[in-house]
């Protein structure tokens, strides 16, 4: 069943949907940018523990005023706080935790995603661009589930959900869910399912996306 709402999702509504889908008690890494906003919609009863790849579990909200401590930052190098039960560890442990499949969910931004769940989010491939990868490739393939938040269309109106990536790959076959302003997709069994559409009908969506879509 594919649900429909007449309005597109706002960025906050997308973050709210992602937050609501995170299982209770999960260990989660939220990427830089839109995914960071998800933390604002997690509820205390969800008991979610946030991981930051620079070496901390139990990350709290962004620090303000006297709580700012230059030794306590997130992966975006923003000062954050620590929650009761937090732990610190070095970088190799932090990425072993991720690569070893101990994190339940990782939420990332993207330039493009292929129907096979290949992710492009680190490099535009543009001439003269200085490449920087950070933890993107580790995050893409490490968690049990990798979800993406992005706008579905480029400024020129082209779909970012594509048959095959034209941007350089970050990770192959790693994305299982995509949250956009116009639709939420689930990628499983080599099929792209549409869980919901927002401000666009399933038929109109299918006409604008160059991959075969199935109703969820």
């Amino acid at each position: 069943m594919t649900t429909y709402t007449p309005e597109k999702l706002t960025r906050d509504e997308m973050a709210q949907q992602v937050a609501a889908d995170i299982p209770a008690g999960a260990f989660v890494n939220l990427g830089i940018g839109q995914p960071t906003n998800v933390s604002n919609f997690l509820t205390a009863d969800q008991g979610v523990t946030l991981h930051t790849e620079n070496g901390m579990l139990g990350m709290g909200p962004v620090a303000t005023g006297e709580d700012i401590d230059e030794d306590l930052i997130n992966a975006g190098k923003i000062p954050v706080t620590e929650l009761p039960g937090a732990s610190f560890f070095h970088h190799a442990d932090s990425f072993a935790m991720m690569r070893g499949g101990h994190l339940d969910v990782c939420v990332l931004g993207a330039f493009q995603i292929s129907e096979a769940g290949d992710l492009a989010n680190w490099h535009t491939g543009a001439e003269g661009a200085i490449p920087a990868v950070g933890g993107a490739m580790d995050l893409a393939i490490g968690a049990k589930q990798t979800w993406v938040m992005m706008s579905l269309f480029t400024k020129a109106g082209e779909s970012k959900l594509v048959k095959e990536l034209s941007y350089p790959v970050t990770g192959l076959g790693c994305v299982s869910r995509i949250y956009t302003e116009s639709a939420v997709f689930e990628l499983r069994d080599s099929t792209v399912f549409v869980r919901s559409t927002h401000g666009i009908s399933f038929e109109d969506l299918a006409s604008r996306i160059p991959v075969a879509l199935e109703r969820a």
Binding site: H90, H91, A92, F95, A96, V133, M137
Partner: peptide, 12 residues
């Protein structure tokens, strides 16, 4: 250029 986790693991 090295992915961050690979950088850490190569050092380790």
């Amino acid at each position: 250029l090295v992915p961050q986790g690979n950088l850490a693991e190569r050092i380790r």
